[in-house]
Design a protein around this nucleic acid. Structure first.
Length: 391
DNA sequence: AGCTCCCGCCACAAA
DNA sequence: TTTGTGGCGGGAGCT
């Protein structure tokens, strides 16, 4: 197939049993790929994204880009423009997407785990612009229903859609938005999403896909991995937009530590066979952890009520601020007359969410930032309540 | 040993 | 027919 990239040839030259000893599976995870994808495209001035371009710049085969893009598209971050081309919508769309997903879920009368979840894709009202690209595939999507169909070759177009990663992502998110569960394991989620089909191999496949989705959503901090308090079984907890805003402070530290390690490298390909010194590996391991994972050592995160995000953020989508250490890709708030108020917001945000690191390197780095912040703050804002790094 | 999830085959859709 | 898309599950890395 013409799509096979040089990269995939690389992998085929290292068949499963004979990969180089320093092959590191984690370095090639979908989550990391998603982070890198966002580093590339979540910024001002990005309008369209070419899949070939993305694959080349990230150093992965195209198949993996489809995985990422399908999940991102399902939550509105991207919309398909044409073959090979997507347009970037950005995280401002997320509150609206979540609201719509919640409405959808509630409309489907899905309120508890006892109810089978009717499969129905979110209408494309997430983005009005999409209305212009009216085509048959949209109708197919919105008409897709019933989870009970079993897989098999010769599946129709709509049957294929029903099993798509995008639809599964939306239904997975609905589980959180439309129920009162604190956390859910992927096993449980798969059972619910499969409805009445409990075939073992179907279950395994569904769980595999949920792992893919969970990794991508975790990398954006919409969910975080945790453990059930009683069974200690791995489970995922919903963070939503709060997850994103809470980690904005630490995000830059993580980006920074990545930079220190890899320079400007954003591709996964370079990670493929690079040998890392133990110290570098320790830092990159830390950096690879999602910010929420980094936090989770010391912080407990309360479940976000979906209504919070509806109340708070929807009307403020355009005014969403990420805080003083906003990622470079995020447009910073323009200086304005209420600059002073923003300073106080930042201050309280920083105080509230000041992370505590077990990792000394990150503690040092964070300390450095706090020092810089306090010095700037005392100059500009009079030095009231300087922030202190908690130990 | 069970969990996790990368990898790429290959069916299906679109051009 | 060729190229684009993405479901799927084997099996290896990770814990």
């Amino acid at each position: 197939m013409a799509l096979v990239s040089s990269n995939s040839k690389d992998s085929s030259s290292f068949p499963s049993g004979s990969r180089e000893s320093n092959y590191c599976r984690k370095q090639k995870s979908l989550g990391l790929l998603c982070s890198n994808f966002l580093s590339l495209y979540d910024r001002d001035g990005i309008d369209t994204i070419g899949l070939d371009d993305a694959a080349a710049r990230l150093g992965v085969e195209r198949r993996r880009i489809y995985d990422i893009v399908n999940v991102l598209e399902s939550i509105g971050l991207l919309t398909k423009k044409a073959k090979n081309r997507y347009s970037w919508k950005g995280f401002g769309i997320i509150p609206k997407t979540l609201q719509l997903l919640k409405q959808e879920g509630l409309k489907e009368s899905y309120t508890s785990f006892e109810d089978p979840l009717p499969f129905k894709i979110l209408e494309e009202e997430v983005d009005e612009k999409m209305q212009t690209s009216n085509n048959s595939s949209q109708n197919d999507k919105s008409n897709a229903s019933s989870a009970s169909k079993v897989s098999g070759l010769g599946a129709s177009k709509s049957e294929r859609k029903e099993k798509s990663l995008g639809l599964l992502t939306q239904n997975f998110v609905k589980l959180f938005l439309c129920s009162d569960v604190e956390m859910i394991s992927l096993d449980e989620a798969a059972k619910i999403l499969l409805g009445d089909a409990h075939d073992l191999s179907l279950m395994r496949t569904k769980v595999r896909r949920l792992y893919d989705i969970a990794n991508v959503l975790s990398s954006m901090n919409f969910i975080e991995k945790t453990h059930h308090p009683e069974t200690r079984k791995p489970a995922f907890r919903w963070l939503g937009m709060k997850g994103r805003s809470q980690v904005s402070l630490t995000n830059d530290l993580i980006l920074e530590s990545k930079k220190r390690t890899f320079g400007t490298e954003l591709t996964n390909s370079s990670l493929k066979r690079c040998r890392m010194t133990p110290s570098v590996k320790a830092i990159t391991d830390q950096a690879r952890m999602t910010p929420s994972q980094t936090r989770s050592d010391c912080m407990t995160v309360k479940k976000v009520d979906a209504s919070d995000l509806e109340k708070g953020s929807i009307q403020n989508v355009q005014n969403y601020h990420f805080g003083p250490f906003a990622p470079i890709s995020v447009p910073k708030a323009k200086p304005s007359s209420n600059n002073r108020k923003q300073i106080h917001d930042w201050e309280s945000l920083a105080i509230t969410h000041s992370p505590q690191y077990h990792n000394q390197a990150l503690r040092d780095l964070f300390g450095h930032y706090m020092e810089a912040w306090n010095s700037w703050y005392s100059e500009v804002a009079g030095g009231k309540n300087p922030i202190q790094l908690q130990s």
